[in-house]
Simulated assay, not measured.
Amino acid sequence: MWIRVWEYDVRPSARAAFEQAYGPEGAWAQLFSTSEGFRGTELFVSSTRPDRYLTVDRFVDARAWDEFLAANGEAYQRLDAETEHLTAGERELAVGDVV
């Protein structure tokens, strides 16, 4: 299994919209699901900071991710721009095979 883990600082007024867009049934998961190699998205909220979230996007392998991005790069960039206002910051924490 290959994963991407991101951490987000979400604007307090945008928490509901963020959860909708980034959750397992949200716009990001819907876009990723166009890849046969996509295996799901998980969304976590911090127990100590309600404005901090983690997403874990799972693909069968790095090749599936690369193929998804090659086929959907423009849609990915468009959705990223559409959801940018929901966060005050974001960081990629991990990417690669689960060990």
Rank of each mutant, 00 (worst) to 15 (best):
Ala14Glu: 02
Pro50Asn: 12
Ala21Trp: 02
Glu67Asn: 15
Thr34Glu: 06
Trp2Thr: 01
Phe59Trp: 15
Ala16Thr: 10
Ser35Ala: 15
Thr83Arg: 05
Pro12Asn: 04
His85Ser: 05
Ala27Gly: 05
Tyr8Ser: 10
Arg49Ala: 13
Arg39Trp: 07
Arg52Lys: 13
Val95Gly: 06
Phe38Gly: 02
Asp57Ser: 15
Trp65Phe: 11
Phe44Val: 12
Asp51Leu: 13
Asp61Ser: 07
Val98Cys: 01
Pro50Arg: 13
Ala70Asp: 04
Arg11Ile: 14
Asp57Glu: 15
Asn72Gln: 03
Ala75Val: 00
Trp65Gly: 05
Pro12Phe: 05
Gly73Ile: 03
Gly96Gln: 00
Asp61Glu: 04
Phe32Leu: 14
Phe32Arg: 13
Thr87Asp: 01
Gly23Ile: 09
Ser46Ala: 11
Gly89His: 00
Leu31Cys: 02
Ala27Asp: 05
Ile3Trp: 08
Ser33Leu: 03
Val56Asp: 04
Ser46Trp: 11
Phe38Cys: 02
Val56Ala: 11
Thr83Tyr: 04
Ala14Ile: 01
Val45Phe: 11
Arg78Asp: 01
Asp9Gln: 09
Ala75Thr: 00
Arg49Ile: 06
Asp66Gly: 09
Asp9Trp: 07
Ala81Glu: 07
Arg58Ala: 12
Glu42Tyr: 11
Leu79Cys: 09
Ile3Met: 12
Arg15Gly: 01
Val5Glu: 06
Arg78Ala: 04
Tyr53Cys: 04
Val99Gln: 10
Ala70Val: 09
Leu93Phe: 05
Val45Thr: 13
Asp9Val: 08
Val5Cys: 10
Leu31Lys: 03
Glu92Arg: 00
Val45Cys: 13
Ile3Ala: 15
Asp80Met: 10
Val95Cys: 02
Ala75Phe: 00
Thr34His: 11
His85Arg: 05
Glu74Gln: 07
Ile3His: 11
Glu19Arg: 09
Glu36Ile: 08
Ser47Tyr: 08
Asp61Arg: 08
Tyr8Asp: 09
His85Ala: 02
Glu84Gly: 01
Thr34Gly: 04
Asp57Cys: 14
Phe18Lys: 13
Glu90Pro: 00
Tyr22Gly: 03
Trp65Asp: 02
Arg4Val: 06
Gly89Thr: 02
Thr55Tyr: 08
Ala14Val: 01
Asn72Ile: 01
Val45Trp: 07
Asp66Leu: 10
Glu42Lys: 14
Thr41Gln: 12
Arg78Gln: 03
Arg52Met: 08
Pro12Arg: 06
Val98Ile: 03
Gly26Leu: 06
Met1Phe: 05
Leu69Ala: 15
Ser47Val: 11
Arg52Ile: 12
Ala21Tyr: 06
Val5Thr: 13
Ala21Asn: 03
Arg39Lys: 14
Glu74Cys: 02
Glu42Gly: 06
Asp61Phe: 02
Thr87Gly: 04
Glu7Val: 11
Glu25Ile: 13
Glu36Asp: 13
Ala17Tyr: 14
His85Met: 02
Val98Ala: 03
Arg52Asn: 10
Arg63Thr: 08
Ala64Met: 13
Ala16Cys: 09
Leu79Val: 10
Thr41Gly: 09
Pro12Ile: 03
